[in-house]
Simulated scan of single mutants.
Amino acid sequence: MSRSPSSITKLLSRWQENEPGAFEDLIDQVYAELRAIAHNVMSLEKNKPFQTTGLVHEIYADLGTKSGIDWQDRNHFFKIASIAMRRALIHEARRGKALKRDADLVSADETLLFSGCGTAEDWLLFDSLLRELELQDTCMAKIVQLKVFCGYTNQETADSLGISIATVKRRWSFAKAWIYKRSLEPDS
């Protein structure tokens, strides 16, 4: 059952005010949507370091430690959740890479980064490139974050960032090309 954005915003407010049980009520309301987002992200992962439920639980654990966040609304919550998801995947990729001594970093291309063939090494490279992109253009990095990790449409991304769909399309195309080009460079 889909919950209205206002009911989620109310739960976020209750949680922010440290009302007992508010976080658990919030998770009950957003669990199905978090699972759908996690399923979308895990469909991109070749080696599957998490099951969908496991990734949601990682998010749940990470979000449960967040205090002092001025929760604005449903979109803000899901942006933070997508960051927690990214952090969990990157942490797991680093852990896996540390276990594989002398593993070569796979050169990523757009197919690997955006079509679902990613390995742990690809996620590490992707995270590094996304951080680099963020230094150059924060808005463009946010577009990539929302589209790749939340599975947002152009319309949802535009609404979330308060920009036009045309801007989302243009910057998304540029970001994909930029990430692809940088992933092929030897120093990436």
Rank of each mutant, 00 (worst) to 15 (best):
A81K: 01
E92G: 06
L12I: 02
E110H: 15
Q16C: 03
T111W: 08
C139H: 06
G151I: 02
H39R: 13
S13T: 13
Y60V: 05
L112E: 13
I165N: 11
D159H: 08
P20E: 09
V106S: 11
R182H: 14
S107K: 14
A108R: 02
G116M: 09
H76G: 02
S67I: 08
K169F: 06
D122W: 10
K176S: 05
Q155K: 08
R14L: 12
T138C: 12
R14W: 10
S115T: 15
F23K: 11
M1H: 12
S160N: 03
G116C: 11
H76L: 00
E132K: 09
A103V: 14
S128F: 15
I59W: 01
R101M: 14
P186F: 07
I59K: 00
Q51K: 13
D28R: 14
G116P: 09
T52N: 05
K10A: 15
K176M: 04
A61V: 08
V30C: 06
G21D: 04
R170N: 10
K66E: 12
I27F: 15
T138W: 07
A103D: 12
A32C: 03
F114V: 11
E121I: 05
W123K: 11
I90W: 11
V56W: 01
G68T: 00
L12A: 06
A158P: 00
S13M: 03
S82H: 06
